[in-house]
Write a protein that binds this DNA or RNA. Structure first.
Length: 496
RNA sequence: GGUCCUGUGGCCGAGUGGCUAGGCAAAGCUCUGCAAAAGCUUCUACACCAGUUCGAAUCUGGUCGGGACCUCCA
């Protein structure tokens, strides 16, 4: 079955065909490490993580490149046209690279919490100044950029005369909002639509590099173009990022790369939608961000409790990546419970076993299971519909639990079907959706203690000493350990 | 102002013109010493108005509401 993806560039779902069969180049805009990641940042990285996982599952070798923006984008509208990283560094009295390192480490830690597979290459902007300078020189030589007072700007008007500037973002240059504010550097530009490739650095600016136009630092857009070209070539398969990057960032990347490489950089542009708070995009502009560390700790006025990284991942998976999701503590709570239920069914499933070569005793049930399982790939092939994948899994969960409870006899399903079900749950839940058990316990001592308590409680119950059995169960619960009596007289437990 | 997206049951959210999305919450039942869990059942909606169609949540037009981008932004 062919994979179909929605290409932002053509605004339609297309059959995905890698440029080189079996190999895929994917570039995703990474974080600007001038501050701590918030909930909104989690979405693209989780989204492109399951996309990466799925492409790999489909038998492709994927080179996943995600940059670290550590040079800081100049603030085009800022009074001082200061480098963002530098500005914060001064406030915190840290060396710029010290700050960059701190937030890079924090970012990596958060990605680990979310069970995101690390990219194959994670290039930094500061590590690719040479490549960026080369690219800028090529653009100047081609006549599409000009230098003013040590800064270099891309000539959008000239480019647009012969190229499709605005196609990706659906923009018409003449319709761009007229800004009335006096902006730094604005008067240097020949046209308000022009964007900076290189900015001359003021004397107090710490991050600076030598260039043919004097000391300065690179513009934001050029870094992605330079790194993507270096590691993935003039044309690669996928370029991803948040929808808010379509303009001007990705539009500008297209223009730069097209002039340098004579080619639109990416065959497929994939953009994830935003996470909103009370209907408003989470971000700097609205000052409504919830930092990831606050999510994990529950330390934010909007949170009623801490939320585990897997809960957040599951929350994101429950809606389609191109739909906006509105954050709320209630919605997260629902996700937490749903994930728990699904995961417990999954654990039950892995413990089921049937005799080899058993035929299906209930053909209808057997077929139903096979159908639900086979649809999983169909859904993922349809532009990564993770929400539908989960819906089918929730349809399968009661069947699994019923088999365990005996409401559905184990003889109803064939050996092949049970194995298919077990394998598929593992592949989709763990390998593709990237979920994992967060309550997993690998402490042998605790296991032993729990077994001891369960034995004592069993004994008490058999003597109808309910005072003792209830005491054990209640005390454990107050410690956050839930003990459940099962049908066969056994007891199971898990840490809440 | 320009470009675009969107309005689904108590809440969150899938939705390809005709077929129960799913989750959470709630209620009832079964199981159970009690509880929890689990299973079964119930609650069955598509902002409003008009149109196209045998048939529209799904297409078209309009009205009203919400949002994104046009500035750093995931």
């Amino acid at each position: 079955m062919p994979l179909k993806v929605y290409n932002s560039y053509t605004r339609q779902k297309e059959i995905f065909t890698p440029i080189t069969p079996g190999h895929i180049g994917m570039y995703v805009c990474g974080p600007t490490v001038s501050g701590e990641s918030h909930l909104g940042h989690a979405r693209p990285y989780i989204t492109f993580d399951f996309i990466y996982r799925y492409l790999t599952f489909k038998g492709n070798k994927v080179r996943y490149v995600r940059n670290i923006t550590d040079a800081g984008h100049f603030e085009e509208e800022g009074r001082e046209a200061e480098d963002k990283v530098t500005k914060k560094a001064l406030l915190e009295k840290l060396e710029p690279m010290e700050l960059v390192q701190k937030y890079t480490n924090l970012f990596h830690w958060a990605m680990l919490q979310f069970n995101c597979i690390e990219p194959a290459i994670e290039p930094t902007a500061t590590g690719h100044i040479v490549e960026q300078l080369n690219m800028i020189e090529t653009i100047i030589a081609a006549g599409y950029a000009y230098e003013v007072n040590g800064s270099v700007y891309f000539d959008v008007k000239k480019y647009a005369a012969t190229h499709d500037y605005g196609k990706l973002s659906g923009r018409i240059i003449d319709d761009l909002l007229e800004t009335t504010r006096e902006l730094d550097g604005q008067e240097e530009k020949r046209d308000k639509a022009d964007f900076a490739l290189w900015k001359s650095a003021a004397p107090e600016h710490i991050m600076r590099w030598k260039s043919p136009w004097g000391e300065g630092y690179p513009g934001w857009h050029i870094e992605c173009s330079a790194m993507a070209t270096k590691y993935l070539g003039a044309e690669f398969d996928i370029h991803g990022g948040g929808m808010d990057l379509q303009f001007p960032h990705h539009e500008s990347e297209i223009a730069q790369s097209t002039i340098c490489n004579h080619h639109q950089p990416a065959k497929y542009w994939i953009h994830n939608n935003m996470i909103t708070v009370n209907g408003r995009k989470m971000g700097k502009s609205y000052n409504n961000q919830i930092r990831l560390t606050d999510m994990f700790n529950g330390t934010h006025p909007l949170l009623t409790q801490p939320f585990a990284p897997m809960t957040i991942r599951f929350f994101i998976l429950q809606s389609h990546y191109r739909s906006p999701i509105d954050f709320s503590s209630e919605a997260l709570q629902a996700s937490e419970k749903a994930l728990k239920r699904l995961w417990e069914a999954y654990e039950v499933l892995q413990k089921l076993s049937v005799p080899a070569d058993q035929a299906a005793g209930d053909a209808e049930m057997d077929e139903k299971i096979v159908k639900l399982v086979n649809e999983l790939e169909e859904f993922m092939d349809d532009d990564f519909s993770t929400a539908k994948v989960l819906a089918n899994m929730f349809d399968l969960a009661p069947i699994i639990n019923s088999i365990k409870d005996g409401h559905i006899p184990i003889s109803a399903v064939s050996t092949a079907t049970l194995q298919l079900l077990q394998n598929s749950f593992k592949i989709y839940l763990e390998d593709i959706l990237g979920l994992k058990d967060t309550t997993a316990n690998d402490n042998n001592a605790l296991d032993g203690v729990m077994q001891l308590l369960i034995d004592i409680r069993k004994e008490a119950k058999s003597k109808k000493d309910y005072a003792t059995s209830d005491k054990i169960r209640n005390q454990l619960l107050s410690l956050g350990i839930a003990l459940k009596d099962e049908k066969d007289g056994n007891m199971s437990w898990n840490i809440e």
